[in-house]
Simulated assay, not measured.
Amino acid sequence: MTRLGYQIPNFTYPDTDGAALFDTVRRQAVEADTSGFDTVLVMDHFYQLPMLGSPQNAMLECYTLLSALAQHTRRVRLSALVTGNTYRNPALLAKTVTALDVVSGGRAQLGIGAGWYELEHDSLGFEFGTFTDRFERLEEALQIVIGMLRGERPTLEGRWYRVRDAVNSPPPVGRIPVMIGGAGERKTLRMAAQYADESNIICGIDEIPRKLAALDEHCARLGRDRGEITVTYQTSACIAPTREEAEHELDAAVSGIPELAARRGGMIAGDPATVAAAYEKILATGVDGVTVNLPANGHVEGRVRLLGETLAPLITG
């Protein structure tokens, strides 16, 4: 499971057009693969998120991209952070993730969530529905997808999905871990306790103990061994060899993508010592690991490697 994950959240880079885009993304994944990260993750969206840019900014379809990155990496697991359940039929999703596992030699991971980006749904014709609808759909989908990934032949006559004796052949190379993303204490963490190998949470650092306590309570009620679930915390950073370089690169990113300005205060920015100290505090809250993105300077050659070399010793001890 993920202990130190590198997420690629954006595909809008200075002086980089479509022809050169994949090479910039590939380089980030290769640096992650060779510097201590155990997972490379990309967002499952078709429009850029409002906190990272405009809907017109570049966004690559995640499973096509992950399959391509599988050919350029050797060690890291490959995952969405996280798959929007509303975008795919669950049987198709099971086949897609299985194909990723086969082409990567057993390195696929399923990250999944209920979906939330209403503009994207409305613009592209995906049914959005209510909050309750989306979580009902997620739970039905989990029953189908996990069954197919585990070699079962699930049958479900649900409100949202129907499958009958669903076959998944070829099977995955190995056991594909399941991550559920989100920090809702009543629904999301209950589903993580019931179905997942990993819970990836986004919240304030001061809220982490409460989220962990909620997950503990769900596990106790369901009879699930809490020790079977890895909890990772989603973060954003901007690292460079010196604090001045990190600030300069952050300034340049905000100038090019004004939407990043609102996220600036939440980014962990600075030289390796500063960044390491901040992540030590996060890990002291009780989470098992972190997922990290570099929206300001991940495209700068060497920055992902520097981040991995800085954080991996905190995770591996």
Rank of each mutant, 00 (worst) to 15 (best):
N200K: 09
G204V: 10
A196G: 12
G182R: 03
R190A: 13
K211S: 12
I180L: 15
D197H: 09
G223S: 11
G227S: 14
A166T: 06
R162K: 14
N168C: 11
L138C: 07
I229L: 14
I201L: 09
W160C: 07
A166C: 08
T188C: 12
N168H: 11
E198R: 01
P171F: 02
M148D: 00
I229D: 04
L149H: 00
E157I: 11
A214D: 08
A193V: 06
L156K: 01
I208F: 00
R210H: 09
A192Q: 10
V163D: 00
P172Y: 02
R186H: 14
E185W: 03
R175G: 05
R224S: 09
Q143E: 14
V145Y: 01
P209Y: 09
R226G: 02
M148R: 02
R190S: 11
V167G: 02
V173P: 03
L222A: 09
M191I: 08
W160T: 14
V173W: 03
R153C: 11
E136R: 15
A213Q: 13
E185L: 12
I201C: 05
R190N: 07
Y161I: 02
E198N: 05
P172H: 01
V167Q: 09
I180R: 02
V163R: 00
D206Y: 12
I208V: 15
R150S: 09
A166P: 02
A213Y: 01
Q143V: 10
S169V: 13
Y195Q: 02
E228H: 08
T132K: 15
K211F: 08
M179H: 06
I144K: 00
R224M: 07
M179T: 13
P209N: 07
S199T: 13
C219D: 01
V145K: 00
A213M: 06
G151C: 09
E217H: 14
Q194F: 05
G181Q: 06
V178W: 04
N168G: 04
N168V: 05
C203E: 13
D225A: 14
I146W: 00
L156M: 04
L149W: 00
I180D: 00
L156C: 04
E152A: 13
I202A: 13
T132Y: 11
